[in-house]
Structure formats: structure tokens, C-alpha cells
């Protein structure tokens, strides 16, 4: 007997004709891992203030806060991606929270064929709403980061 677990492939590569929520799950995991790694970096950077003014300024230089040129641009784009990641993770988190309280789900009923599960139908509308919010958020982000800069 062998275990035959799908492993991480199961998180990120849904099978054929998978539902949309599977991709949201994959993105949620991906952004979650990204945020954990970022949080370590963030604590390292912000924590440097505890060792005095000089160390704070040195780390600030390290992350290219006041500089110009390619490196500073790279950090800028990284920050933009970070905002997107946070936006998605937060909004999808809101979706999960609300469905955990049983909202938008519909009621159990007799399945009539061809059957589409009501838990996949109901929250969709809400999901589209969240996606629109995310889209508006991105537009503001682009403006803030790249145009008004």
C-alpha cells in the first residue's frame, strides 16, 4: 500500500473542470505564504529601531527607502505587489468568514438534476462583488503608486 497523497500539487493545481473557488483557495494559500515571509522581513526591518537611531537608518537604507534608481524601483514594485496580496487575502478572508457564519449559502434541498451545489451558487454573487472591490482597489493602487508618484 502506498499513501498516494497529492501533496502541494493538490493546493495549487485543481483538477479538470474544477470550480472557481478552488483557484481562490490556491491563491489564498499562495498569498498567505507570501505574507508570512513578508511579515518576518517586516518585523526585522521595524524591529531594528529598537537598537537605536543609527541601526534604523541603516536598515532603511538597506531597503532603499530614500534612494533612487533600479533598486528603489524594485522595492516600489514589491510594495505594490504587497498591497495587492494583502487586498486579495483580506477580501477572500472576509468571504470565508461570512460563509463560516452560514451566510450566502442557501438551504439544503432535494438535489434535482442537472444539479449545481447551492454552496457554489449562492456565494458566487458575493464573490463577484468582492472581485469588483478588488479591481477598484487595484486601480486606486496603480494611480497611487505609479501615476501620482
Amino acid at each position: 500500500m502506498k499513501k498516494n497523497l497529492k501533496g502541494f500539487k493538490g493546493w495549487f493545481l485543481p483538477e479538470k473542470r474544477a470550480n472557481f473557488e478552488r483557484w481562490l483557495f490556491a491563491l489564498h494559500r499562495l498569498t498567505g505564504i507570501f505574507l508570512i515571509l513578508y511579515l518576518c522581513l517586516h518585523i526585522f526591518v521595524v524591529g531594528s529601531r529598537a537598537f537605536g537611531k543609527e541601526s534604523w537608518e541603516n536598515t532603511m537604507k538597506l531597503v532603499g527607502a530614500f534612494g533612487k534608481g533600479a533598486y528603489a524601483n524594485f522595492v516600489h514594485i514589491f510594495e505594490f505587489i504587497l498591497i495587492l496580496v494583502i487586498g486579495f487575502h483580506a477580501l477572500n478572508g472576509v468571504r470565508l468568514l461570512l460563509t463560516e457564519f452560514g451566510m450566502f449559502l442557501g438551504k439544503p434541498k432535494r438535489p434535482e438534476y442537472p444539479y449545481v451545489a447551492s454552496s457554489l451558487k449562492g456565494p458566487r454573487i458575493f464573490m463577484y462583488f468582492l472581485m469588483i472591490v478588488l479591481f477598484v482597489y487595484i486601480i486606486f493602487g496603480v494611480q497611487e503608486f505609479f501615476i501620482l508618484k
Binding site: P14, E15, A18, L24, F25, H28, L96, A117
Partner: peptide, 10 residues
């Protein structure tokens, strides 16, 4: 985390 794969596959 409500990936919904189960309901899609059933």
C-alpha cells in the same frame, strides 16, 4: 477553507 471541490465532485 471552503475550496468547494467536494461539492463540485460529488
Amino acid at each position: 477553507h471552503f475550496a468547494g471541490g467536494c461539492s463540485n465532485a460529488c
